[in-house]
Design a protein around this nucleic acid. Structure first.
Lengths: 185, 185
DNA sequence: AGCTGCATGTAACCTGTTACATGATTAT
DNA sequence: ATAATCATGTAACAGGTTACATGCAGCT
């Protein structure tokens, strides 16, 4: 099984979900499109790692609510103990920053300012989420045995990193402004 | 063309490189294996975005030194002005943190401590690199027109984010230790 | 004797994205 | 009207990894 499979097991362990919900839910840990999730759930169901109940709905299409099995929990437990592979980041923004030598001062500033704008939106969303969790579960609700622990610390991690990238963006804007003359413009 | 292609153009614009060198060089902006780089370079050469010189060597295998063409520079210049796609992060560590509810206190601590160890190694390497660049080019060597600008600011970005993740790891270790009794162990 | 670095390339495979396909309900 | 949300699935394609293939030099 692949990383996405384990991410699914982990999410289902916290709370039974439909494939549709999972797509949204997994975004924080391992982003995936529904076209990848649905066939994998079928495979995992055949292997006995998850099972589902067919839920009929009115006004909405029917859905399958998936849950983790004991076998699935065992498999996840073993995997969690293994050493994680190195993280990979794919961010076109980095290539564009790297390429500023083909560009001019104004384009470079615009690039960074757009990033700041997007970061601001994410941070606002993240802060709202964290506040909600803290209100719901209190400060003591986040010990390691709680099923909210992982989600809580990961949201805080994202927020911290976003703040730090924001501060870097501002530093870069300062560097660009320091550039005396812009020969090209 | 895809993001990797633009990353290659950007790298070659700074300095002509062999495919072998590129694999190492691109790691900061868009990681890729040589099996992906070599065929893409051939394609790009056919499109007239890059050209190469065959360099014979003694004691080492011959190599192809690739450079960017005027057409390549034009293509890159246009692309840099377009809005970058959203970044994606794939990090198994996040799934494992998310899954601590299947685990125990000691395994969770080990997971985070291993991460701290790896971060420490990366940070040491990064600090050394930044110091070298600053010694080589001085404080004024990093205005936006310099070909070192992109690399310099990206290294600083990575270092900042690594430091921030380190601080987050320590916060998580504190949270784990606060957990009163470990029912499982 | 075996590993690492230099150097290029192909083939098979796995992973992930975009597009196709359907269809009711609700919000703008 | 038109887009978004809910809900599941398949097919085609693009992107990325692992393995195969070669071969010399230098280090342990």
């Amino acid at each position: 099984m692949n990383s996405l499979g384990y991410a699914i097991l982990s999410a289902l362990g916290r709370k039974p979900c439909s494939g549709y919900e999972l797509a949204d839910y997994l975004d924080t840990v391992w982003p995936a499109k529904h076209s990848q999730i649905y066939p994998l759930l079928t495979k995992m169901e055949k292997k006995g790692l998850v099972y589902y109940e067919h839920v009929e709905q009115v006004g909405k299409p029917d859905k399958k609510i998936f849950s983790i099995t004991d076998k699935g929990r065992d498999v996840l437990e073993k995997w969690v103990l293994t050493t994680p592979t190195d993280p990979t980041v794919r961010d076109e923004f980095l290539i564009k920053i790297y390429s500023v030598w083909v560009s001019d001062k104004e384009s470079a500033k615009r690039l960074v300012q757009d990033r700041i704008f997007k970061l601001q939106k994410k941070m606002t969303f993240r802060e709202k989420n964290i506040a909600e969790m803290e209100k719901k579960y209190g400060q003591n609700g986040f010990d390691i045995m709680s099923k909210h622990f992982g989600r809580y610390v990961l949201f805080n991690r994202k927020l911290k990193l976003e703040k730090e990238e924001m501060s870097w963006c501002k530093w870069v804007l300062g560097l660009i402004d320091k550039t005396k003359l812009d020969i090209l413009s």
